[in-house]
Nucleic acid binder design. Structure first.
Lengths: 256, 256
DNA sequence: ATCGATCGTTCGGTATCGTCGAACATTCTT
DNA sequence: AAGAATGTTCGACGATACCGAACGATCGAT
């Protein structure tokens, strides 16, 4: 399994998770490796511009090549490419922000984000990760993955982000069943207080869920007196169109 | 220099540069390695989610972890963080798009981008790379790097993007001298026909150029009858403020 | 200014680990 | 159905990445 690659990757992750200004010694401690080993890996990573060192004090941080590669990932991403127009159209129709995400490990990774078309200042969330249990996108996807994967995810960590985040595996399982039947997932302030989301899964030609597309916005606009029928309808419709674009057959809402 | 890391990185770059749908054999050819070697590296990269394989036909593409890491790079990026407010302010003042970039190898990497505040549809350029000789950002930075680096860059490849791109080392050197004196770099349709840019360098506390900030827009608005005095003034002023934010001393326009 | 501590860096021996070539399996083509 | 091309497995060889320890430099404290 090529441990140097594995170790290099662990270094990158360690540098990525918050705490800036990591030195050789601290990295070696965290990874349980010899200083010299980490030093060698860092030299190699630096030569590839995957890592950068602060001029003085030799602290290391992530390098610019990673931004380029991340961008290249987006460029090659089929779901993202195909979602661009549909997302734009959805955002215009419901006048809210639209997000497209894929399941990455135990989190949902946002691969596309259209701002709510109202001139307000918003921050771009492309590249952000959200625990799958705390967002509608995540629930929409997991509700349609195969049983094995679903059990794994339910048995894994379920971080709590707000008071309303569902962290009980049983309750979450029940919610997923409901999502599978409805074809839409709802999220009511489970990630950020005051924010809600309505999302639907996107399938590929095998009927596997490759991601989800959803509308995110203030609770009072999306879930006032039950989920807004207009938004739910639009999301389901666009998700189905997008799935067809991805090569899915006609009968994609397959319940397992 | 840890060949496996170097090779893994070369694989990522190869997957990043266009041509999607690379298989083991083709990668092995391009890198001049044995199939089994590449296969092992890919397995390791896949386990780390740095690489993804297409379900059928075993083609490989970049993985989602790269997007996360690229995002983490941005989060940890000091110049970017400090430029957010200044860029916003500059964009509002001149009513044009603003870009912030750093020199990465022989290209300028865009680390921040504020859209022109006019409701037009624009694509986000964060993560994009532009040959340094074809943009004002690049010329602004290179005009202030140390002589050795400058020679290297002038001697290196100078890609032509449009008919106006400066690809002659001598002419480019002269242009850089001018930029160093003026404190601003101009670009007149050297990257994209119809588009121009005005940029100024940003310095750190050592007086080294860490990047540049600039205004990009249609030629007729920026360079009509010579560079717009208003834009040039605003860019220089904001760049100086940003430099001060980065810890630069008062006398930052040091000419070498 | 001197000493001590901490961190980054170098070095060389050793065993591990990655590499390679060849064979096998699988899929697509003709 | 046969062939070709690709992905995958295997085992042996030897280069190579790892480690521990020593060195050097930098910073802070006394």
């Amino acid at each position: 399994m090529i441990q140097s690659v594995r170790r290099a990757s662990r270094i990158l992750r360690e540098l990525g998770t918050g705490s800036p200004g990591l030195g050789v010694t601290e990295l070696a401690d965290r990874l349980g490796l010899a200083k010299a080993t980490v030093y060698g890996l860092l030299r190699a990573l630096e030569a590839e511009e995957l890592v950068e060192r602060d001029a003085e004090a030799g602290k290391y941080r992530l390098g610019p090549a990673l931004l380029q590669l991340g961008n290249a990932f987006l460029d090659n991403h089929e779901l993202r490419a195909r979602s661009l127009l549909w997302a734009e159209s959805l955002a215009g129709r419901v006048v809210e922000a639209v997000r497209v995400g894929v399941l990455n490990g135990t989190s949902v990774l946002i691969v596309h984000h259209v701002f709510r078309p109202d001139n307000s200042v918003q921050i771009l969330e492309v590249g952000a990760s959200i625990p799958w249990n705390a967002c509608a996108l995540g629930k929409a996807i997991v509700a349609h993955v195969d049983a094995g994967r679903r059990e794994e995810l339910l048995a894994g960590e379920l971080p709590r982000l707000t008071g309303r985040t569902i962290v009980d595996p049983l309750a979450l399982g029940a919610a997923l069943d409901e999502v599978a039947v409805d074809g839409v997932a709802l999220e009511d302030q489970e990630a950020i207080v005051g924010e809600a989301e309505v999302a639907a899964p996107v399938f590929d030609h095998l009927g596997s869920p490759v991601g989800a597309i959803g509308v995110a916005g203030p609770v009072e606009r999306l879930l006032n007196d039950g989920p807004s029928k207009e938004v739910v309808g639009a999301v389901k419709e666009i998700a189905r169109s997008l799935s067809r674009d991805m090569g899915a057959g006609r009968f994609i809402a397959r319940v397992r």
